[in-house]
């Protein structure tokens, strides 16, 4: 079952580009990555899903309900962490979280305290006394205290220190294990790679690729490094599918796209001292798409 279904969603801001013809689905229980640089349309898509802004055309459903007409119902089961957190400055953290909880009609007190302890957040402080990172923690808590079935995160880790990032990701994995679906928008590709099963790549308002992380990597260049004498270089250069060939410190490295058996057969005839075959990082794939189609 799909938790989110987006169909040909378009949002234009007058002359400025918003998003164009965006379509993708997020299945129940998956962690879906939504990647693209700043201004590509990630937040626009998410805000449309949340009924903060209204699409020019196209439609989106969450839990099978139209995101515009059933927004309050949908919101009951959604936790949202915006990219820029901002809350009522003069409120105390605990009061804000209680205010948030009051909308869901369930007692979240225990969970507020559990999560605050886990994320190391002082509930007695006033919002305007908090650092950016601590405000982000407040954002994480308000997004999770009502145990939502769908968690939407827009650039979640900016401002969090590495330890907190790790704890936060652990928290997300736990929620996911309990059945929550997660939509994670980011331009920090490393975090998407660590968490997500599938990703959609958005560029200048259009989705250019939707694929599972493993397919994305498989279908892509591999990085090969071979520690071998210089006599083999010419042979590598002749191999079809090899690009970016270079020799450095006794190691030949190149990108290879194609049947890996061809490389293995080729290597069999050589006397090599060491060998690396690496999956490209998401960042490399991403840059590849952006450069190729840019």
């Amino acid at each position: 079952m799909n938790v989110i279904e987006i169909r040909n969603l378009t949002k234009s801001y007058g002359k400025a580009r918003g998003i164009i013809d965006v379509s993708f689905d997020v299945a129940e229980g998956e962690i879906f990555g939504f990647i693209g640089p700043n201004g590509a349309g990630k937040s626009t898509t998410i805000r449309t899903l949340l009924n903060l802004i209204h699409a020019t055309s196209g439609s989106a459903t969450v839990f099978g309900k139209d995101c515009r007409t059933h927004a309050p119902e949908i919101a009951r089961e959604v936790g949202y962490l915006p990219s820029e957190v901002s809350y009522y400055d003069r409120m105390k953290v605990l009061d804000l979280l209680k205010y948030s909880a009051s909308f869901y009609g369930k007692d979240c007190t225990k969970r507020i305290h559990e999560l605050a302890a886990y994320m190391d957040l002082d509930l007695k402080r006033r919002i305007d006394d908090l650092s950016f990172g601590n405000k982000k923690k407040v954002g994480i808590l308000q997004g999770l205290i009502h145990e939502p079935k769908l968690i939407i995160l827009d650039e979640p880790t900016s401002g969090l220190d590495p330890l907190m990032q790790q704890r936060f990701f652990e928290l997300l994995r736990q929620e996911n294990a309990k059945g929550a679906t997660i939509l994670l928008s980011s331009h920090v590709l490393d975090e998407v790679q660590r968490l997500c099963g599938r990703v959609a790549i958005i560029k200048e308002g259009r989705i250019i690729r939707i694929e599972s992380m493993s397919d994305l990597a498989r279908d892509h260049y591999k990085k090969v490094g071979v520690e071998v004498g210089p006599e083999a270089d010419a042979a590598f250069a002749a191999l079809e599918g090899v690009t970016n060939l270079e020799r450095k410190d006794g190691v030949v490295s190149f990108y290879y796209k194609g049947d890996i058996n061809a490389v293995v057969a080729h290597l069999a005839g050589l006397r090599i001292r060491n060998l690396w075959v690496e999956e490209p990082t998401l960042e490399e794939i991403f840059l590849h798409y952006y450069q190729k189609e840019g």
Binding site: E73, R76, S86
Partner: peptide
Amino acid sequence: EFLMTRPAS
């Protein structure tokens, strides 16, 4: 963004 994503129209 906080208030309007609560379950209230």
